[in-house]
Each structure stands twice: as structure tokens, then as C-alpha cells.
Design a binder for these strands. Sequence first.
DNA 1: GTTGAAAGACACCATCC
DNA 2: GGATGGTGTCTTTCAAC
Lengths: 138, 138
Amino acid sequence: MDAVNEMIIEELKKDSRISMSELGRRVHLSPPAVRERVRQLEEQGIIKGFTIALDIKKMGYPIEAIIEATIKNNRYNDFKQQIQTYTNIDFCYRIAGEACFLLKAHFQTFVDAETFIDELQPFAHTKTNFVFSEVARF
Amino acid sequence: MDAVNEMIIEELKKDSRISMSELGRRVHLSPPAVRERVRQLEEQGIIKGFTIALDIKKMGYPIEAIIEATIKNNRYNDFKQQIQTYTNIDFCYRIAGEACFLLKAHFQTFVDAETFIDELQPFAHTKTNFVFSEVARF
DNA sequence: GTTGAAAGACACCATCC
DNA sequence: GGATGGTGTCTTTCAAC
């Protein structure tokens, strides 16, 4: 991870669709050289994938909630399994702190949010924070 | 946002580097047609950008923390401004709940994390949760 | 890691459905 | 709103250095 690799990552973060030639131009490297570096970054798992950034609100999910979940009755595995069945979860972290997990999910309506939280209750008690806005990206 | 657009988003989420021809093949549309749809999705702001998914731990930041910040002395703007100066923040949400903001940041060492939290104290009181792991993606 | 050449793929446009 | 076909450009890929 030298300075050139950092530049490569910076450029791909801004636009992952540029060609290897264009990327080479931007970081002052030949196409085969930059291609090989990207391949290695993928191989090392530093670059996990090429993807898109989505605006979840504009996709018809105006409600976003961050939920802290504290597991009940030792039902860790049930909780994890339940979590996997949802497609409206943006991330879920196992954390050290007051709660056991912290997750973010999105909903079309408050009714959907209520249903979601209710469904978690057998496994965890929850504390829900609704998202007003995101402070501009970094 | 019909079923085809959802397929387009799904494919680009998996690999944002495929050509418009390949994307067209996957969603059963001609290259110009799929190209136009992607253009519109960008224009509408549903697709915010083409980017990469990074493994922050493998980039030399083994420590990740989720920090809840409750603003002190009405210093909202100072806090927001301070936040913008950091490059180690993954996201920051303005939320409804016990705290005012919830942010995630990454660090090389615990000393860095301590310094970071200390620097926020003039503006907010904080509650820090360290991240053990991420529950597999969705 | 660079260069150069060949083959191929892609984007783009106009046209038509 | 989508399909087709032709053109020019750019990229990729490989070899040799």
C-alpha cells in the first residue's frame, strides 16, 4: 500500500467505471502496470468489489432507522439468522457497548418499520433512532 | 422504477464495471436502451455514483468505532464543521433519539481513537461502541 | 514497469419500428 | 421507449524489452 495504490483507490472511489488506461493516465502508470496493481488489491481483499452508491430515499424508502439490539435469552444465532432474511438492511455490526448489535434499515412506511421492530422482539430488545439526514460525505 | 430498473441496479451493485452491452444482455435490453435507463437513474439521483467497496481493516485501520454524539451548548454548526475536517469517518447521520448524531470512524490505533473522541468533547458528549465485526452483507 | 502492435469491444449516432 | 446497423475510437492484451 504505497502512495500510488492510494491514488488508485481514490480514483476508483470517485468513479469505478473508468478504463484501466484512463486510470493509468491519472496515476501516471502504464495500463498493464495499473491493471496488475488493481488485480492485487482485489486479491488481497482490500478492494472488495466494484459497486454503485444508491439514494435509498429516492428508491421509495423515505424512512431510515438505526436500531440498537440487545440480545435476549442468549438467542444470538436466532437473531443473526432472522437478520439474514431481510433485504432492507443496509448494515449490521456486532459491537462492544450497551447493545450487542447496531443495524441500519430502510422502510417505505412507518407501519413497515413497526412490523420490522416487532419481529425482532423475540430475540432482542431494541432502541430505535430514526435518521433525519446524512451529513455530507467524506 | 420498474422491474427492469431494479434488475439494472442489482447487476450494477454486484459489478459496476460491466459494459452497457453486457448489462443489456443480462437484463434483456439493447445497449442503447440500457444506457438510457442508467443515464436517467443517474439524473434522478437514484444512482449517486459508481464506486468501490473497501475493506478498511485491511487498509491498515483495524479499529472501527460507532460514536453517538449529543451536542453541548448549542454547538451544532461547530460540530458539523469539525466533522468535515476528518478523513477517517465512514458516515455521519443526524438522528432522532437519545443522541443527535451517530457516526462511524476508523483508526489505526486506540490512541488515535482516544484523540478523536477528545477532540469532539468541546462540541458534544459522546458514547462510543467499538465494532467487533460486520454481519455478512445483504 | 514500459512500449508498441493487433484484435476486439465498446460507445455513439442515425434510422427505423 | 426500444431495436438495429455502421463507424470510429479506445481498450485490452500480449509480446519483447
